[in-house]
Amino acid sequence: MFKKKDVTLIIAVLILAGLIAAFLRIYSGETGETVRIMIDGNEYGSYPLGEDSVIEIGNAFGYNRIVIENGEVFMQEADCPDQYCVEHKAISKTNETIVCLPHKLVVELHVQNREDDFDSIAQ
């Protein structure tokens, strides 16, 4: 059923898949973690945790400034009445969230291709 070249082809594909998987595994530590911002249940945007940046959001719900710095995310400023999101400590682990309830805004950490530390947080 198989010819010699067929077998070579199969082995080549498997080796290639393995190499790519290994390569991704090594480099995913830097690129895999993303900061996802959801507004009213819909995704607003995703940003790499590894790159420092400032995300400003102004919409009908209000104003929020989210800062990504040294592998951590925190809410620097918000014009919501309760300010719980600003007081929330910086997050850096998968499945951690900062919620700004009055603005229906959620900042969550999301990691692809990596075993999570935990599935959810009771608080």
């Binding site: 290639l16 898949a17 393995g18 790519i20 692809q112 291709n113």
Partner: peptide, 15 residues
């Protein structure tokens, strides 16, 4: 480029 994460799976699936 993150779609390339699926490359190994798709290679084996194609096989």
């Amino acid at each position: 480029m993150s779609v390339f994460y699926y490359m190994p799976v798709l290679l084996v699936a194609g096989l």
